[in-house]
């Protein structure tokens, strides 16, 4: 995914105060971090603020990055994930305390997804339609518990491998796979219900 030597050099230049090196890091990773934040937090405004926070934290802790312990992108993603978890604990939207086995079914009926999406009775052109589907999936993703949500985001949207995800989430690989299975299945159930309602 990244040339370890190149990134290590970039980080060293950054620490030495090379502004251009830091800008290169920002240019390389801002899109990825923003997307993780957006899919996890749900809103573009939150994602923008959180992305800035991630880079501020990265900038301060850059000297602590050890390239022998893992890829830079894993380190960056870990910072991002930790900030997202902190953010959700602060904003009281945190469902981390829900046990995985309890699922999220008690939250699902509070606000049906069909209320969050536009009228599907008169399908417009394919482009608009696919955008609406994207918004529906995004809304459904926001209904997953945070631990299932982060697992599927890192796997299915960021294409990270299970070992990397396990490092970021600090749980065993088996747990990562289990959460991914549950996250995907839960999402499918939510969307199945939505599309059965509106169609």
């Amino acid at each position: 995914m990244e040339d370890v030597q190149v990134v290590a050099m970039l980080v060293r230049r950054c620490i030495a105060g090379d502004a251009a090196a830091w800008e290169e890091i920002v240019q390389t990773y801002n899109r990825r971090i923003y997307n993780i934040c957006y899919r996890f937090a749900g809103s573009g405004d939150d994602a923008e603020d959180l992305t800035q926070e991630v880079f501020i934290k990265m900038y301060r802790t850059l000297p602590s990055y050890d390239h022998t312990k893992g890829a830079f992108v894993t380190w960056v993603t870990t910072i991002t994930r930790n900030l997202l978890v902190d953010h959700f604990r602060k904003t009281k939207q945190d469902r981390m305390t829900d046990s995985i086995d309890a699922g999220t079914s008690e939250h699902e009926d509070a606000q049906p997804l069909s209320e969050q999406i536009q009228d599907h009775s008169a399908p417009p052109d394919a482009h608009v339609r696919s955008r609406e589907v994207g918004e529906t999936v995004h809304a459904a993703l926001g209904k997953l518990s945070p631990e299932l949500r982060e697992a599927v985001i890192l796997r299915d949207l960021q294409d990270m491998d299970y070992r990397e995800i396990a490092t970021v989430l600090k749980v065993p690989e088996g747990t990562v796979k289990s959460r991914i299975n549950r996250g995907r299945a839960e999402l499918a159930r939510l969307l199945q219900r939505t599309y059965r309602q509106v169609m």
Binding site: A140, I180, R184, L187, A188
Partner: peptide
């Protein structure tokens, strides 16, 4: 369901 969910994502 897991397969469908992955496809949605």
């Amino acid at each position: 369901e897991a397969e469908a969910g992955r496809n949605w994502l």
